[in-house]
Computed example of a mutant assay.
Amino acid sequence: MNVAIIDDCKTDQITISHCITQYFTHEHTYGSPSIRCFDSGEAFLSAFGAGQFDLILLDCCMAGMNGLETALEIRKLDKRCALVFITVSTDYAVDGYLVSASGYLVKPFTEQSFAQAIQVALSGSADQRTYVTLPHAPHPARLLLKDIVFCDIDGHYIQVHQRNGAILRVRMTFRALCDLLAGHPQFMEAFRGCIVNMAHIQKVEELNFLMVSGERVPFRKKERKKLLQQYSDYLFDNTDLKQLG
C-alpha cells in the first residue's frame, strides 16, 4: 500500500504518518504501508505519476497550491486513487465532489476517527478490495492484486515481488499459487515457476519483461510469440480505445 501525505506542517505530517502506521499495523487487509511526505502540492505533483499511490491524504489549506487545486491535478492523471482531505472545517466538503474525494478528516482528529475515515476511503473502490490471502506466519498475508509485480519459486517457497520493493516469502506450491490467481486475467505464466502481473510490465525486451519495479523477468525465445500475443490481448481488453470503434 503506497501512501502520500501532502501537508505543509511537519508536525501534522508526523501525526498523520503515525496514524497510518497504527492503522495498517492492526488492519492486515492491505499489507504494510510505504509512506512519503510532501511539503506542498507543487512538490508532490513534480514527483507524481499515475498509479503511484493508492491513498493520498492532503491538507486543504496550504501555501501555494491548496488541497483542491492539487487534487484537480491529481485527477487528471489518476482517477482511481483514494483521496482524503484533511481540514479544519467541513466547508470544503462540497468542493470534494469535483475530485471524487473518498473522505474528510477534520482537525483535531482521534486515531479512531482517522481509522474510520481510512476504512471508508479504501473500501470505496472495488480495485482496493481485490486481494488474495497467502499462508504466512504469524498472520495470513492479504495482498492487493495490484501490489503484486511478479511471483517466482525459490526452493519450497514462493517469492512475491511487490510494488514497494518488498519481497514476501510464503511456503506454498506453485500450482496452489496458480489456482489462487486463476480468474484474474492480468496474471500470466512467463515460464514454469514464474507469474507476472501484466499490468506492471513497463517494456518488452528481446527475452525479458522489464517490470515497473526495475526488475527483469526472462522468458524463453520459443515462448516469445505466445507471450507477446497474450500480453497484446490483455492490453486490448483493458484499454478504452476499443470503445471508440
Rank of each mutant, 00 (worst) to 15 (best):
E73G: 05
D179A: 15
D237C: 12
E42L: 11
H200V: 12
A199K: 07
K79S: 13
H200T: 08
D127E: 15
T90M: 11
E206D: 15
V84W: 00
Y231T: 04
A50V: 08
F48R: 02
G124L: 03
F53D: 11
R224A: 11
V3C: 15
S46C: 04
K222G: 00
K221S: 10
D7T: 11
E111C: 12
E223W: 02
L145V: 13
F191M: 13
H26C: 12
V106Y: 02
G49T: 10
P108I: 15
V149P: 01
L68V: 13
T90F: 10
L145D: 10
C194Q: 00
S232D: 04
L57D: 01
N208F: 13
G155E: 04
I16S: 08
D12G: 02
D12Q: 09
L105S: 08
L207T: 12
P185K: 11
K76S: 14
I56K: 09
K226E: 03
L57I: 08
L177Y: 11
G67E: 04
I195V: 09
P135N: 05
T25A: 13
V88E: 06
V170H: 06
V132H: 04
T133M: 12
L244T: 03
D78H: 10
Q186A: 15
H139I: 03
F114M: 09
H28A: 05
K107P: 02
V212M: 03
V204D: 07
H139Q: 01
R220F: 09
S213T: 07
P185C: 11
M62A: 00
A126T: 11
S89T: 06
R169F: 00
G51A: 12
T173F: 15
Y104S: 01
Q128I: 03
F187K: 02
I86R: 02
V149E: 01
S102T: 08
Y23P: 06
L244M: 07
K107D: 05
L98M: 09
V132I: 14
A101F: 02
R192L: 04
F187D: 02
Q243E: 10
F187T: 01
G67H: 08
